[in-house]
Design a protein around this nucleic acid. Sequence first.
DNA 1: ACATTTGTGTGAACAGTGTTTACAAGGTGA
DNA 2: TCACCTTGTAAACACTGTTCACACAAATGT
Lengths: 211, 211
Amino acid sequence: MSTAKRRERDREKMRRRILDAARQLFVREGFDNVSMRRIASRIEYSPAALYRYFRNKREILSALREEGFARFVERQQRSRKRFPDPVERLRDGARGYIGFALAEPDHYHLMFSTSCGQVDLDGEWAASSLRSFHMFRDLVVECAATGRFGEVDVNALVFALWGQLHGLVHLIATGQVAALSKGADLDALLDRIIEFGLRPVPDFQQFQSQS
Amino acid sequence: MSTAKRRERDREKMRRRILDAARQLFVREGFDNVSMRRIASRIEYSPAALYRYFRNKREILSALREEGFARFVERQQRSRKRFPDPVERLRDGARGYIGFALAEPDHYHLMFSTSCGQVDLDGEWAASSLRSFHMFRDLVVECAATGRFGEVDVNALVFALWGQLHGLVHLIATGQVAALSKGADLDALLDRIIEFGLRPVPDFQQFQSQS
DNA sequence: ACATTTGTGTGAACAGTGTTTACAAGGTGA
DNA sequence: TCACCTTGTAAACACTGTTCACACAAATGT
């Protein structure tokens, strides 16, 4: 009776072991520089064993990405509760995004950089990625409603802000910001960049000053 | 006497043939999915022959990237002459950058996407990439001088604008803009995004209206 | 003219890759 | 006890990037 469930658990345990081994290796050496044989030997199994749990190497990466997105969404949603002002949340979200890329570069790279060669909008990606996209979109809609960004088309605003964040994080994650602005206070610099990106439109009147 | 020069020319011709074959293949199938054997067979040589002209596969990619950057810089410098106003040039540069990514996705991908796995700041990249970075930086400095972007630190401004552009192009190049905003007029959307990204700071007075 | 050096192309091999397959062992359910 | 199903494996397949000893031709030195 319960053997089925125990076997299910064992199976999940094995998947975990594979994923953990794979993540550690991928992160340290990059997806392409890690072979199935290495992953297998790290958990002391034969290479073919991995194929009982994952269809192929890419599927291991996909599973790790999925986990990364889950962690990311969770992290962002925690901040969501704390700030009532949507712009404040956007600011915090940007910091969180950058912080995530800096604090967990392993997950970040797995999620966004690894295997850029293939643009994969084939389902697997869509599932977890679309969720965070919609989260972001909703937030931007709220921000647009404050008038801070003028009458701009929401679609344009979404891509402008998303692209901005995405690009900045990319520059940071690839070390170009650090390399090209040596000696500067990185945290302060990032705050200035974020603040500039969120600057209100010229004719924005902030009428909700405390009262 | 002239035999040396002729041999040099022949050598260059051979390099060209290899590069052309490699580019066509890389672009269509991605760096990792193209083998040295395929490149070789496409120009009807043995695989080992390629190693007389390039140290390894990565060096072929590097050479192609170099060419891509040359084309890019040249294209941007042409626009540079046409517009006296730096902000206008920035706008045009952004359009040019996006246009380049859309019109020559092969070069674009070769330059920015391919082989993201390895962050390569090892000389080869620095040479051609730094040039276009400095071009961009100079332009931003000019823009900052107009006051349009307020008193913001130039460094922050550079990364804010660069990241913005970089991220946007990435979203476009990976098809996410097209996919997520189906049916919208892409050109108009992009213009709105660019315009939003270049919006002046709230207290900017445009005192140079014609006169 | 001859000998020698130099450059170019090659087949075969090496060490590695992702993945498949035929097969063995062992627990599960009837 | 018997069939079944899952898990693990060694061996193989068809690749990969790269190297090397070797052949051949053209350029050079004498």
